[in-house]
Amino acid sequence: MSGLDAKAHMDIDVKAFGKVAVLMGGRSSEREVSLMSGQGVLDALRARGVDAHAFDPAERELSALKAEGFARCFIALHGRYGEDGTVQGALELLDIPYTGPGVMASSIAMDKIMTKRIWRFEGLPTPDWRLVASADETRAALAALGAPMIVKPAREGSTIGLTKVVDAEQCAQAYALASQYDPEVLCEQFIDGDETTCPVLESAGRANALPVIRIVAPEGNYDYQNKYFTDTTQYHCPSGLPQSEEQDIQRIVEKAFRTLGCRGWARADIMVRASDRKPFLLEINTSPGMTSHSLVPMAARASGISYEDLCLRILANAALDGGTGRP
């Protein structure tokens, strides 16, 4: 971690935030998790004296935010219509500052293929991939990338629609599952090694990587169930990685954050290949989970930042793409 002051919350005037909407729920396949994230954020902000209120865009028109005098929004939505630039664009039109990256960065980060293209252009390491449009193309991708191979929707999160393919017989089923969630399906080279994640929290306009978390899931299967609803997945923070590896991951994550034009906060997922200890960026989440199982709060705690103060810091960085909205 670099450049973060664990006591910085002392300078935040919560009254200056005005009336705050915590956007939660929404219409995506991650609605259930978003409701849990949003409730946690809502409770934390209220505990710090913020005039915060729950707001579910699946149940109310966004125009009500303006009509009811909300001054800023904490986006606790996940997936489509919350993390993909759509709600960010609506809030830009309403002139209401919001947390997390802006319209373009959110839209790009939600699209794993566009994200990988930019990272590859910028010289950042990411697993090789193929974009496929049929089961036959999925089989061709397996021949090119080798087994095992990851097949997943290009624009979904929380491992929804993901399959680890080990032979050609699985390709048709894997493609069918992924294409239920998105017409664009990503086939990605599988990286065997340590699964890690690293949050980024902006402070004074600078991207600062928090401590790296190493994830050990049952049988290496870090799926939707093991992410949110079981206690068998192990999270190591401190990561237990050599200091040089941790610093390398943090450096790469900060650059990945900047190259997509992110602001506020995000969390990047990285695999460290066992054979040569090389890190590979998988994706970046621009509205990470904030549930009891979530990883950004865990990394923040390791930095001496409580859950409540983390929520306060994120809210303090709420802005519009033009840069207004910061206290």
Rank of each mutant, 00 (worst) to 15 (best):
G38N: 12
C187F: 03
T159G: 05
R313S: 02
M110R: 07
E246T: 12
P288T: 03
D192P: 01
G40P: 11
E188K: 10
S63T: 13
Y98S: 13
A154M: 10
S2E: 14
C262D: 02
E245R: 13
I160S: 12
Q234H: 12
M149V: 15
A172W: 03
S244Q: 13
G3P: 11
S306N: 11
F190K: 06
A302I: 06
M104G: 09
D11R: 06
L201P: 03
M271W: 00
D167F: 04
S306I: 03
I75S: 08
D13R: 03
D194P: 01
G322W: 02
T324W: 08
L4A: 12
A207K: 00
T324A: 12
S134N: 09
S292P: 02
T196C: 14
F280I: 01
E61S: 15
A256T: 00
A105C: 12
N285W: 04
A133V: 05
D231R: 14
V212Q: 01
V20K: 00
Q247M: 13
P288N: 02
I252N: 04
S28G: 07
C237T: 09
Y228M: 07
C187S: 06
P242C: 06
S306Y: 04
S179G: 08
K15D: 11
L295F: 02
K164R: 15
V165N: 09
E195F: 02
G304A: 05
Q173W: 00
L295S: 00
I191R: 03
F70L: 08
T197K: 07
H9I: 05
N226E: 08
Y98G: 08
K7Q: 14
D321C: 05
I252P: 02
A21I: 09
W119T: 14
L162T: 12
F74V: 07
T286Q: 03
C262V: 00
R263M: 10
R72K: 15
D309T: 01
A147C: 07
Q173S: 11
R251L: 08
L145I: 11
V50I: 13
S294N: 01
I118T: 12
R273Q: 14
I96M: 10
M271I: 03
P211E: 06
D167L: 06
D5F: 07
L295T: 00
T291R: 03
G157H: 04
V103W: 11
Q250N: 09
Y228S: 08
S203Y: 12
G289I: 07
Q88K: 11
P279I: 00
S34P: 14
A318C: 05
L177T: 15
D167R: 09
A90V: 14
K66Q: 14
A319E: 02
V216K: 13
Y228D: 01
I108Q: 04
L124V: 15
G322N: 14
P288M: 04
L186V: 03
D269K: 04
L282S: 00
G264S: 12
M271K: 08
A178L: 05
G18K: 10
V165L: 06
L281D: 00
E68C: 09
P279F: 01
H53Q: 15
L295I: 02
E195D: 02
A140C: 02
G289P: 01
R326A: 12
E308I: 06
S63A: 14
P242Y: 00
A76V: 02
Y98T: 07
T196V: 01
G264I: 07
S306W: 00
D167C: 13
L201W: 05
P127Y: 03
G85N: 06
Q180H: 08
A274N: 14
C311H: 01
S158E: 06
